[in-house]
Design a protein around this nucleic acid. Structure first.
Length: 267
DNA sequence: GACCAGGTATTGC
DNA sequence: GCAATACATGGT
């Protein structure tokens, strides 16, 4: 079995694109996607890469070395960011899970987002054995009133999650269709949801619909663009701008000293 | 206690 | 249009 290059579990699962994977004491990661449970480690990557579902989930068929080389050739700083986490891959997460997770991410911090998503799954997701839960379906959440979400402690975001669930469950928004729609149209449709603005829409496009040209612009990316790429715009990074974004986001978060003069106190 | 967290809706100009 | 502000909750 061939060794999978350009794939690192920590870089991929702890770079801020997903919230349900948990690192185990032995360094492996356990998670759930589309109702499937997986434990993945450096040792079993080759086997898992053979599996159609997981191979696609981890985007293992894509030539990230080539993408990284192209991005690196375009910009010296981008080359440094890409080299910082060359094993990072953009997951193929479920569209609804990505939409819902990033609605919950707004004005929130990553550890707390993880806790909210965990409680959401435990309270409203289907048990799939061994104490694991599937991500709750939009239909299940659509049937709730926002008040029913108070036990997951997501605060003012409860009404946003319910609105998203209702628009998806009713077919007002067809997430699958957005995979092939014009990017700007897909973005506008997502922004019909109460609580979905440009940033959450772009996260949904990139992480849930695998639209690799989408470029979510959060506070970190705004700082990074100002400081590291003055005068550049996301479009300059081309059709893989989303991957560039993830390299830059991860690099920035792991090296906050780059922005020391702009931030009073980090973390 | 103030301030912050992978933002967004609302309000006021 | 664009700048200010509230929003739930939990950590520093």
């Amino acid at each position: 079995m061939q060794k999978i290059l350009d794939f690192d579990l920590e870089q991929t699962l702890e770079c801020g694109q997903c919230f349900r994977w948990e690192r185990q004491p032995d360094g492996s990661y356990t998670g759930v996607a589309s109702g499937h449970i997986l434990n993945i480690s450096e040792e079993n990557i080759p086997q898992i890469a053979q599996d159609e579902f997981w191979g696609n989930y981890f985007d293992l068929k894509r030539d990230y070395a080539k993408i990284r080389a192209d991005l690196s050739a375009a910009d010296r700083t981008l080359a440094r960011a890409a080299q910082f986490a060359p094993g990072m891959r953009i997951l193929n997460q479920e569209p609804w899970e990505a939409l819902c997770s990033f609605i919950l991410s707004q004005n929130n911090n990553i550890p707390r987002i993880r806790g909210i998503v965990k409680r959401l799954c435990e309270q409203f997701g289907e048990p799939i054995g061994d104490g694991f839960f599937a991500f709750p379906t939009p239909e299940r959440i659509a049937a709730l009133e926002p008040e029913a979400l108070c036990e997951i402690r997501c605060g003012f975001r409860a009404k946003y999650v319910v609105d998203a669930a209702r628009k998806v469950a009713s077919g007002v928004i067809d997430l699958e269709r957005l995979k092939t729609a014009e990017l700007s149209d897909a973005r506008e449709q997502l922004m019909q949801i109460h609580g979905v603005g440009p940033k959450v829409a772009d996260c949904t496009l990139l992480y849930g619909l695998h639209r690799l040209e989408a470029f979510p612009m959060d506070v970190w990316m705004k700082r990074a663009m100002q400081t590291l790429f003055p005068g550049r715009s996301p479009e300059a990074f081309g059709c893989y701008a989303g991957i560039a974004q993830q390299y830059i986001f991860h690099y920035s978060r792991c090296n906050p000293e780059l922005f020391a003069q702009e931030r009073q106190h980090a973390g």
